[in-house]
Amino acid sequence: MATIRKLRGRWQAQVRRKGMKPRCKSFDTKQEADKWARDLETQVDRFGAAPDTKILESTTLGELMDRYKIEVSPTKRGAEQEIQRIEVLRRHELAYRTMIGLSQQDIASFRDERLKVVAPSTTVRELAILSHIIEVAIRDWGLPLAKNVVKMIRRPVIRNERTRRLDGNEEQRLLDACDAGKIPFFKTLLIVAIETGMRRGEILGMRWDDISHNRRVVTLTMTKNGSGRQVPLSQRAFDALMAWKARADVDQQRVFPMTAGSLEQVWRRLLLRADIIGLRFHDLRHEGVSRLFERGLNVIEVSSISGHKELRMLKRYAHLDAADLVGRLG
Rank of each mutant, 00 (worst) to 15 (best):
Ala50Ser: 13
Arg23Lys: 15
Leu115Arg: 10
Val117Leu: 09
Phe186His: 07
Pro156Gln: 05
Gln31Ala: 15
Glu63Ile: 02
Gln105Glu: 14
Asp324Leu: 14
Trp244Asn: 04
Leu220Thr: 00
Phe186Tyr: 15
Gly9Lys: 04
Ile153Leu: 13
Ala177Asp: 03
Ile4Ser: 02
Glu264Trp: 01
Thr188Asp: 09
Ala146Pro: 06
Ser73Gln: 05
Gly142Thr: 11
Ile138Ser: 11
Gly181Pro: 03
Gly197Lys: 06
Ile133Thr: 04
Arg16Gln: 09
Thr219Gly: 00
Ala79Arg: 09
Pro120Arg: 04
Ile4Glu: 01
Leu94Tyr: 05
Ala274Cys: 06
Glu264Gln: 07
Cys24Lys: 11
Cys178Ser: 04
Glu63Met: 13
Val157Arg: 15
Met152Phe: 03
Leu263Glu: 13
Ile276Gln: 03
Ala37Cys: 13
Leu297Ser: 03
Ala128Asn: 09
Val326Ile: 14
Gln84Thr: 09
Trp208Arg: 07
Asp45Phe: 09
Asp210Ala: 11
Gly330Tyr: 10
Ile277Ala: 03
Lys187Asp: 12
Ala79Phe: 06
Arg200Ser: 12
Lys35Met: 14
Ile300Gly: 05
Arg159Lys: 15
Lys151Trp: 01
Gly307Leu: 06
Glu264Leu: 00
Ala33Lys: 12
Asn214Trp: 07
Ala248Thr: 01
Arg154Ser: 10
Ala13Asn: 06
Arg254Tyr: 12
Val118Lys: 01
Thr196Pro: 10
Gln84Ile: 06
Lys30Ala: 02
Ala193Ile: 07
Leu102Cys: 08
Leu272Ala: 11
Lys76Gln: 15
Val88Gln: 06
Gly181His: 01
Arg164His: 08
Ala119Gly: 03
Arg90Cys: 01
Ser26Asn: 02
Gly288Asp: 04
Val72Phe: 07
Val250Asn: 00
Arg111Ser: 11
Leu292Asn: 00
Gly201Leu: 04
Arg114Ser: 08
Arg269Asp: 08
His286Tyr: 03
Gln43His: 04
Ser73Met: 02
Val218Lys: 02
Thr59Lys: 04
Arg155Phe: 05
Leu329Trp: 06
